[in-house]
Design a protein around this nucleic acid. Sequence first.
DNA 1: CGATAGATTGAGTAGGGTCAAAGTTTGTGG
DNA 2: CCACAAACTTTGACCCTACTCAATCTATCG
Lengths: 261, 261
Amino acid sequence: MLSTITGSPAAPSGPVLEPRPPRSLDDDANRRASQRIGEALQLLARTLNPQRRVVRAGDTIYQSGEAFSHLYVLNSGICKLMSLSADGREQVVGLKFRGDWLGFSGIAKGRYVCDAVVMDVGEVWAIRYDALLAACGRHPELMGLVHEAMSGEILRDRDSMMSVCTLPADARVADFLRDWANNLACRGLRTDQISLCMTRAEIGNYLGMTLETVSRALSRLAKQALICFPEKGRRDIGIPDVGRLEAYVQRCLTPVGHTLQ
Amino acid sequence: MLSTITGSPAAPSGPVLEPRPPRSLDDDANRRASQRIGEALQLLARTLNPQRRVVRAGDTIYQSGEAFSHLYVLNSGICKLMSLSADGREQVVGLKFRGDWLGFSGIAKGRYVCDAVVMDVGEVWAIRYDALLAACGRHPELMGLVHEAMSGEILRDRDSMMSVCTLPADARVADFLRDWANNLACRGLRTDQISLCMTRAEIGNYLGMTLETVSRALSRLAKQALICFPEKGRRDIGIPDVGRLEAYVQRCLTPVGHTLQ
DNA sequence: CGATAGATTGAGTAGGGTCAAAGTTTGTGG
DNA sequence: CCACAAACTTTGACCCTACTCAATCTATCG
């Protein structure tokens, strides 16, 4: 029973056998996305026999400056990419989830140019880059996968850029939460209660604002009931309705009409 | 006479035959970079026989939403990437110069996700993506080239992100000019006088600030003699010393100590 | 030589940064 | 298991940077 039933007028009055909450198109898309990620991981496992390693919060997968040799794929867990420029600036420039690749930015320079730091326990697969190149020659679908992953990373970076450049602080935080929830949803995980495993300082650094502003933004979003905090602790965040968060972000744009010229 | 002469103490007193201004390590690096770009283009021309097209300011190379089929490489000219989100926000998300690839972000989605608009006359090479994949199988060095280009794009996007997130407006504009000059230098072009071929509005949009702020920042930089305007018109910008611009950007960081925590 | 797109500059304002003081968690060692 | 310390979070007050609105000036192109 996958197709949506377009409201038969004479619905049964008792809520007991109420059909499950509308399985939306999004749910379908998410399920497909999740499946694709699983298949991609299987393809990697099959063709490359990657070296698996269990990692826990705080572990470093690679560090800026090290000679580039491997790409990594997250089989599970969450990871942040920290870029530190020559002059000492430090910034979280990316967040990675199951199925995401790590280390692409090292290819061009022959060295890793950021630190990949684990934020939540998981398993990471190491893939020798030279072996990958060789395998790509034999398996065109593998090359497609790699290109798609790199292309996707470029896409996501641009979305971040857009968010940072065009959204006010509150909306940026809302968009961040929406994006995180979205990432979970695409991997078949529930999104009504997410645990960020990042400090306010890290979030702020990622979004280009101070930790105080993040804290205030979260408080304001909570006041509007767009998010809510569980009784104990404020690290976990409840998102009653991702759609409303999305709508909020939209609303922040309409007044300003942020087109060029 | 390419190697640098390490100051013989008894230098001739007359300035007439003064050895040319010190050819720095940077110059060397730039020459190598320029050569690499040339060689990459030759490799492409040799292995892929790309379709060449002369383009002029305002031309569109591809548009958001079109089915993805080709990648493009700029043989000359300058090009901007305009991303427009579903909700109508529009942003310049990238600038491309000779040797740069266009269209990577379309691979993941099967459609182009931004507009590529020419800003300065040049020649663009169109490369069918399927032909490229096939050729990559036959020519490993070609695959290396493509990966390097994608990796480089990821790198540059992150640098932009960093600049937007950690620099105040004036420094961001300075950094933008530095980057532009650097792009020219890497291609063997002179950098003391650059012509931006972008309006203040476009620059501001790219840097995440208003056109007024760009204008004011340029005026302030000019007041400090970090840049200068030629007598007629303010579209061209003179950069007497890129190093001083770079130093200025640095100075903006020291007071704040922008590390995490 | 007007018309129009673009650039500059000023005045006023507000969003977000800085600094500071509590309040909460979390973790560690007795 | 409790107590204390360290790390993290929240909230307030103040201020500054960059945005908005507006007027003026400059280039460019019919």
